[in-house]
């Protein structure tokens, strides 16, 4: 199940763990990324607080936690080579995985069609 936030993140739910990344639309807006900072594995994130930072040549952007939960895994490949996110933001460019504190937390988020309309 793929879900999207108004902050231009995507979440893919498998069991009670969601993979989180930034959307293709967000990646296009940001341009070439040069630095990515990810949360620590084991960190407890609260919905709405800063979870990651993605930086282009021009600017730094916060990526807020779209749901509350515990970080179970991060993607070291994007830290080594931030351009992976620009090349494949909704695939190889995933940022981190989070175990949902509330299994129903994704219900209120947008599906792909709703996000496509929102991001227009």
């Amino acid at each position: 199940m793929l879900r999207f936030t108004e902050e231009h993140e995507w979440l893919k739910l498998e069991g009670d763990i969601a993979t989180v990344g930034i959307t293709t639309h967000a990646a296009e807006q940001l341009g070439d990324l040069v630095f990515i900072e990810l949360p620590k594995v084991g960190a407890a994130l609260k919905k709405g607080e800063g979870a990651a930072v993605v930086e282009s040549v021009k600017a730094a952007s916060d990526v807020y936690a779209p749901v509350s939960g515990e970080v179970t895994e991060v993607n070291p490949a994007v830290v080594d080579d931030p351009t992976i996110v620009g090349g494949d933001p909704q695939g190889a460019g995933w940022l981190y995985r989070i175990r949902l504190a509330d299994p129903g937390a994704l219900d209120s988020l947008m599906d792909e069609a709703a996000y496509a309309a929102f991001a227009k």
Binding site: E7, I22, A59, A60
Partner: peptide, 8 residues
């Protein structure tokens, strides 16, 4: 996503 930096 939120741009928090000064845009140079």
């Amino acid at each position: 996503m939120h741009e928090d930096a000064v845009e140079p």
